[in-house]
Computed example of a mutant assay.
Amino acid sequence: MPNRSLDYLIFDQSRKKLLAWKNHFEIALGISRGLLYLHQNSRLRIIHRDLKASNVLLHSELNPKISDFSIAKSFGGNQTEGKTRTVIET
């Protein structure tokens, strides 16, 4: 992605100043929309389990894209609960 990941922009002091409050707000809304899609609107319900700034990529227009689904958990379309026995950490 042209703008790399979200952590590249928000944790670097010189790049952090380039983002206006409106950009921060739009990025947060985009991430929320992505999670809502994964949890409710996709064919499979997907729980990401590792959402952090480095796993949010930013498109050239700062549209966020959730990435790295390596430890994600998927459920059937009608399933609303699930249990795991494995502790997941990053």
Rank of each mutant, 00 (worst) to 15 (best):
T80S: 10
A72G: 09
T90A: 00
R4T: 00
H24E: 12
S60M: 14
K73G: 02
L35Q: 10
R49G: 00
V56R: 00
F69S: 03
R45F: 02
L57Y: 05
S70W: 09
K65P: 14
I88V: 09
R33L: 10
K65W: 04
L29E: 04
S70H: 12
R15V: 15
V56P: 00
G76M: 11
N3S: 08
T80M: 04
F25V: 09
S67N: 09
G30V: 15
G82T: 01
N78L: 14
P2C: 07
R15M: 12
E26A: 08
G34R: 02
P2T: 05
N63D: 15
E61K: 10
Y37C: 09
N63K: 11
S67Y: 05
L51T: 06
R43Y: 10
R45I: 00
D68M: 02
I27K: 01
S74D: 10
L62R: 00
R15F: 09
A28S: 09
L51P: 15
H59V: 15
N41D: 14
G77W: 04
A53L: 03
A28N: 07
M1N: 02
N55C: 12
A53S: 12
L19A: 03
R33H: 12
L19G: 07
K83H: 14
N23K: 03
R15L: 12
E81R: 05
I31K: 11
